[in-house]
Design a protein around this nucleic acid. Structure first.
Length: 220
DNA sequence: GCCCAGGTGTTTC
DNA sequence: GAAACACATGGG
């Protein structure tokens, strides 16, 4: 049987898990906050941190920029790395204000928007792309640790590829489609959370619909 | 108690 | 540039 391609994996994941309806946030601005808070952190902890911001009435860029560091750090404590992330949130909110807020930023061309975000201290490629895709609905594919792990196993990516090379591979295979990128990344996270740990083999993974070891079983 | 989580920046070869 | 390290809480 032919190996699954990027589109085939997407179709199979979508059939298996259904639409994910990401990003879990009530506003584009909250997407931005969550994108920083979730860095190397489980989403359940991010939810607690977002609630902490609400309780502390730190829900606007202005309030976050003006808040004392210790207050902000205390509010987001459950998300971990709270000192680091407090600084990063302030930097992102400052840039957000400097750029005139969401509507003004939405007038930027996608590449420019991405560069603007990447210049913010604490916003790396994945965080920037989370924001560009999920807060601005632009067709930029988000690459995370799960993406590499899973697609290297599927022999659709080579080990050691850089972030931009992986992103380019997905975008070339799928064409520019923000709606597909939106679901795809969410589906990859869903799959990655349930199976496919780095070292252990595939016992679980073999039960799963796109596992390479299960390909013959799942041949279509 | 140990491992891991929807990374990023800094330091050091 | 690539590898090693710091940053920290909460759930399994």
């Amino acid at each position: 049987m032919a190996a699954l391609g990027f589109r085939g994996v997407y179709d199979r994941l979508y059939r298996h898990y259904g639409p994910q309806g990401w990003w879990p946030a009530r506003s584009p601005f909250e997407v931005m906050l969550g994108a920083v808070l979730t860095q190397n952190t489980a989403w359940s902890n991010v939810e607690k941190a977002l609630a902490g911001l609400e309780n502390a009435e730190l829900t606007s860029a202005g309030a976050i920029v003006d808040a004392p560091h210790d207050d902000l750090a205390a509010a987001i404590r459950p998300a971990g790395y709270f000192n680091v992330k407090a600084r990063r949130l302030k930097a992102l909110c400052q840039a957000y204000l400097d750029r005139g807020g969401w509507a003004a930023m939405d007038r930027l061309e996608t590449g420019t928007l991405r560069e603007v975000l990447l210049r913010v201290h604490g916003v790396g490629r994945e965080t920037a792309d989370d924001i560009v895709l999920y807060a601005f609905n632009r067709p930029v594919f988000v690459v995370d640790a799960y993406t590499r792990r899973i697609f290297e196993r599927l022999d659709l990516l080579e080990a050691g590829m850089g972030y931009e090379a992986v992103r380019a591979r997905f975008e070339a295979a799928l064409g520019p489609d923000a709606a597909v990128y939106n679901e795809y990344h969410a589906l990859v996270v869903q799959l990655g959370k349930s199976v496919c740990r780095p070292r252990p083999l595939c016992e679980h993974c073999c039960l799963n619909p796109i596992c390479p070891s299960a390909r013959s079983r799942n041949a279509e």
